[in-house]
Nucleic acid binder design. Structure first.
Lengths: 126, 126, 126, 126
DNA sequence: GTGGTCTAGACCACG
DNA sequence: GTGGTCTAGACCACG
């Protein structure tokens, strides 16, 4: 839960965003749960508060969280109806590019299906 | 083939590398085929030659191409036996992160399998 | 009537002020009507009494209400003659900024006129 | 063209975003035009580069501009077909709230229509 | 030279 | 106490 790798080329704020999403999809965080405050999270992860703030803002934009003034930031009940097809096609493009890379590394189609199943076993959307 | 998007956030050299790999996997380029020279490719794609040069260097490192001094750069016969597990686990990590994003966008497991199949129908490794 | 959204970025006290104004313009509250006391309103809306207090103070400053010591806060008969041109030009500036945003979102001039008419159909100033 | 008011309560980055949009809608900036670099704009407006950077990023998210790596930020040809109804309904909500305020200040429906027409005379979307 | 990320530290409005 | 804005200044990848 929320492992940050400071040596990764992936920006810290993106790691935080992704980490929260993972925690939600794994049921570690559930709707209504309060996230640590910007300052607390910053202290815990040894990251600058501005960076956490950026991550939280993105989470709110992506409707993962809601912010209640003076109270904090909370996990939102996900809307499982709406599909942002524009976002989805971006993800799909990246997905297919990764498959190209994987295929070049001699990863088989069966393995790729296996990766999808592995993930699905851990992540829940209901 | 080899569509470059100068406004993409994906670096140009990565787009070139990926584009060549796609062309190979789709059979558009086959082992032994000669790539355009760095200058020719740069002229054709309206890209700085340094960028093409960087892409070609990476393609050679990843054993997609071989360069014969004074002759040019050629598509290599792929080694379908060796698996670089270190590289593969990196790809797998990115793959799973994309699945997290997709799941959050209400993409179903079935759709993800569909994406894998779509790609596999186009890409060949034999 | 007086819908408060705690997750909105609009400050709670502003929401209260605006809500009262709407109720007056829609005839839900009429001159002479007594508002709930600060404590009652706070209890009803589940809001901190300080926030209600701030809203009431603003309503009084803007001459929407009058407070009679020991009696309570009452809706005032609006003065339909006086125009605070300074306030009006502020509103106009914001109005035009919104039109810029709307135009950028491909909202047509006709639609904007429609929005004005919609509002006018609900709000009364006589 | 891009007047910044440092004493305004409207955040500087929002003023920059709005100012650029106005310039585009007024034809002062046209598709293909290059914006000043982040550093140049910061120097000209006496604002911190980070603040300009934030404004430019928002402009790109809202598809007002495109960024070409190493080249700069350019005005995009607007898409006059797509309508983001979610954004539009947010704007409409704010619009109606302003009308409430205006009505309370004894601004007539005719004046409001006049404001719309004034804006439309200056802003173009074709 | 270009924008993107990050840290450090300050100040502010809201509740 | 909460998140939001802003400045100052550094470093980085890309081209």
């Amino acid at each position: 839960m929320l492992q940050i790798d400071k040596t990764s080329s992936k920006p810290l704020f993106e790691q935080v965003v992704l980490g929260i999403k993972e925690d939600v999809l794994q049921g570690i965080l559930i709707p209504g749960d309060k996230l640590l405050s910007v300052r607390e999270m910053a202290a815990q992860l040894l990251i600058n508060p501005n960076t956490i703030s950026k991550a939280y803002k993105i989470l709110e934009e992506e409707e993962v969280t809601v912010t209640v003034r003076g109270k904090g930031t909370f996990i939102k009940t996900p809307d499982t109806e709406v599909r942002n097809e524009k976002q989805i096609s971006k993800i799909k493009k990246n997905f297919i590019e990764l498959i190209v890379e994987a295929t070049y590394l001699n990863v088989t189609q069966e393995e790729l299906h296996g990766w999808v199943d592995e993930s699905a076993a851990v992540l829940r959307r209901d």
